[in-house]
């Protein structure tokens, strides 16, 4: 794994940890969902995407944003309602739009929209795709099935990335999902790829042909078996410590990682100090 990728994963982790700390100190309003443990997923995916591809994110989207844009300042300002916020502080943690990146806060809602964008791309910009991140819990929503059906029928360049972290808020996957995600993809005749490791180079090499297929109009589902190390939101984790899952960081523990992590932590600390000191955001265009 090259430094740039590992470093980006560590920046995401530092960002999420800092955010939970700021919440703990009462410095952030509202709520948030962190992606601790899942940082490698969007970092691996961004290596396969073009800036002209569309990315649809969800409630747990900080990693998706930071993997695409090296902009922790803008994201933290958005979450804290400070000057320089990506969306003037209106959207907050889970409603962000920048260029071809967009997140929404309702489960499953983004998939039909991503299908619509893919329909546009198919006609206007062949070769581009729409990539939508969803979770295992999202499969409870009917909109997912409607969108998968349409994508398959219309051969839309839609890539669905499932972050299966084994838990939907507090409900384990075996209590909310009958059958499998692979079975669901198969039902629509869509290719499905299961990714179990966290090595971004391996992941990219493995997914590259699938992503090329999506660009050619063969929609696909990629399922990452991953682990949410932190709470669903903040301080709401009811799992015993041993049930949380493995941390990719342990596998890559090394002096190099320590060095990159120290740099990431100090960068995010500086970002937080800067953003906290900024004036409040202003919402001008309603």
């Amino acid at each position: 794994m090259i430094d740039a990728d590992l470093s980006r994963m560590l920046v995401i982790r530092a960002f999420e940890r800092t955010l939970l700390d700021l919440y703990g100190r009462g410095l952030v309003n509202g709520t948030t969902h962190t992606c601790l443990g899942q940082e490698y997923v969007p970092v691996a995916m961004e290596g396969l995407l073009d800036p002209a591809d569309h990315v649809f994110s969800n409630h747990r989207g900080h990693g998706h944003y930071l993997a695409r844009f090296d902009d922790p300042e803008g994201l933290l300002a958005e979450i804290m309602g400070r000057e320089g916020a990506v969306c003037a502080g209106v959207g907050g943690s889970q409603h962000i739009r920048r260029d071809r990146y967009l997140s929404t806060g309702v489960q499953g809602e983004s998939l039909p929209v991503a299908a619509g964008v893919a329909l546009h791309l198919k006609r206007a910009e062949p070769g581009r795709l729409a990539c939508a991140y969803i979770g295992d819990g999202t499969f409870g929503e009917g909109a997912v099935y409607e969108a998968l059906n349409l994508a398959a029928l219309w051969a839309l360049p839609l890539l669905v990335v499932v972050e299966n972290n084994g838990i939907a808020q507090s409900t384990p996957t075996d209590k909310h999902l009958a059958g499998t995600i692979a079975g669901r993809a198969a039902a629509f005749g869509l290719p499905h790829e299961l990714v179990e490791g966290a090595d971004v180079d391996d992941i990219r090499a493995r997914l590259a042909p699938l992503v090329s297929g999506v660009r050619a109009g063969r929609p696909a589902v990629v399922e990452f078996v991953t682990h949410r190390l932190g709470p669903h939101s903040k301080g709401d984790d009811t799992r015993p410590a041993h049930a949380v899952g493995v941390d990719w960081r342990d596998k890559y523990a090394s002096p190099r990682l320590d060095r990159l992590e120290a740099a990431a932590v100090s960068r995010i600390e500086a970002v937080a100090a800067d953003v906290i000191a900024r004036p409040l955001s202003r919402w001008e265009a309603r």
Partner: peptide, 16 residues
């Protein structure tokens, strides 16, 4: 699929 159709329309609108 009323939900998906409306979502697709929104996706098209987002794309210009």
């Amino acid at each position: 699929s009323e939900s998906a159709i409306t979502g697709v329309a929104a996706g098209l609108a987002l794309s210009g």
